[in-house]
Structure formats: structure tokens, C-alpha cells
Amino acid sequence: MTTIDTSIYSAVTEAIRGEAQRTLSEGLVTAIVGYAAARRKGSAQPIVITNAADSEKLIFSPACVNNLTVYLTKAKKEIPKTGRVGIVVKGCDLKALVGLMGESQLKRDEIYIIGVPCAGVLASTVQPSQELTSDTIASKCRECGEFLPQGCDFVPGVEIPAAPELEKNYSAEIARLEALTPAERWAYWREQFSKCVKCYACRQVCPFCFCEQCLCDRNKPQMVESTPRPAGNTAWHIVRAMHLAGRCAGCAECERVCPMDIPLNLLNRKMARELKELYAYEASFQVNDKGPLATYDEKDDQSFIK
């Protein structure tokens, strides 16, 4: 077990507070979506502040796992309707934000991006008060190569300490599953999907599930069975993974919020890997006009077509 150096987080917290204070008092933004300390020791929760005086409430800690971008789209109830909105984002969150801009859901000039240099956050399965170590770090952070967000309006100027080499859970699990026979894989996923209670928390938390009416809620025709039975569950997760292919930014919120611990991000990571291999596409900090499945190249691979 290796301890991960998160000493920069206090300086980051200070810088976020300073920037929030400045932008709110100067009227540059009307609100800031960030993290604040929650009741349980060491825990954090999302907060929307509209008052410069509240800037002191903002924090950044290993418990700041949420992807806040969802508060800019479908969960924007508490966000003022007018003015520019500031948001605190980690690298992974920024990729989602940028993805939403590419899908015309957000306009760059309407948001003020406060990027966070990030050494990693805690896995959802551990106590928020725990120390960030090679054991407690979230799986998504193990495979993250973008500690410093780019293209933001503000990024605290701190030196990110060198990260230790961590075991890549997703890659290992994908490789393990790929090595199985189709029947064994089916058995694995059948077991996983059978746990699903169709609470749709994964859909609720996903920044990219912004449809007003989900395809899976339609009944004319019913494309996907809506009852929480194995057939409908499987169809739902396949459709979800397909709809996120080429869009998912890898924030892993779906997996974090799943009450049944279904490894949902595994599907998304698998699709991301395939699309990278096929079309050299990866979620990034650059606004992409067209995702990999909204465009084509005449020379695309077609070895699977007879």
C-alpha cells in the first residue's frame, strides 16, 4: 500500500475560495457550483453558492468525487437562470463538460470553469475520512493520465506531486473478461444485470443522459422492456452503453451511484477502448464537433463485413 500525496489540496481549496470570492464579488459569475464539507467526517457534497461570502464554504478534498457538470444541465434547479455560472471541475469532469459543449448542451461563454489539479479521489466504497492510498483511490483515478485540466478560466497554480504507479483495475477486468468464452461472459453479465433494480440512478447522474424522454421510457413502441426483470435490465444496460459509446468521458459516476454495485463503467471503458482502437478517438479537453459515431471515414475498418 502506498500513500498518495494530497498535500496540494489545501492550496487548491484556498485558490478555489479566492477565485470564487473574486468572480462573485466582481459579478463575473452569478453562481458557483463546487464542493463543500458535509456532515460526516471528511465527507464532501455539492454546493451552489451565489454569495461571495459563502466562498469560504468551498473545499477540495479526496472526498470530492461527484461530477458537478450534471448541475449545469438537467439538475440545474438551484442554478440562477441568468448570468454566467462558475463550476469546479476535475480533469475527468472537464471532459464531460467539454463533451456537453460538443453536443450543444452548454455554451462556453456561459460558464466559468475552475479547473482542479487533482491527484485522485476516494473510491465510493471507502469511508470519506480515510486517507487516499493505492488501496482507497477510485478505480477511474488509477487509469487517469490527466491530472491537470486544460482550457479552463482558472486553474490553481500548484505543482502536482508525482503519482505512484497504480494497478489498473478496469484494464485488468476487461482483459479478464475478454479472455473468457462468450458463454462465460454472458453468465458474468447475467449475474451482474440480474442485480439491477431499475432505479435509474445511473441515468440520473450521467451528464450525457440529458434526453428529456429516454428511449427506454417510451411505450410507442416499447423498445426496451421497462420492468426490472432480467430481460429488460440487460436491454437497458446494452442500450445505455451503446448510447454512451463515443461520448462517455469516464467520470464513473454511474458506477459510484449504483446501489447494486453493478460495474457499469466497465462497459463504458470497454467501448472507449474499442473506439480508440478503431477510430483513434478519446474523450479529451478539446471540444469535438463530431464524436466518433457521428462521423465516418471512407477507409474505416470493415473487416467484420462480408
Partner: peptide
Amino acid sequence: EAGCVGCFYCKKV
């Protein structure tokens, strides 16, 4: 129009 959220994937393809 009621369901459209304006992601414009249709326009892209």
C-alpha cells in the same frame, strides 16, 4: 419537438 433536446447528432450525420 417535445422530446428533442438539441444535441444535433441528426445534423451531424
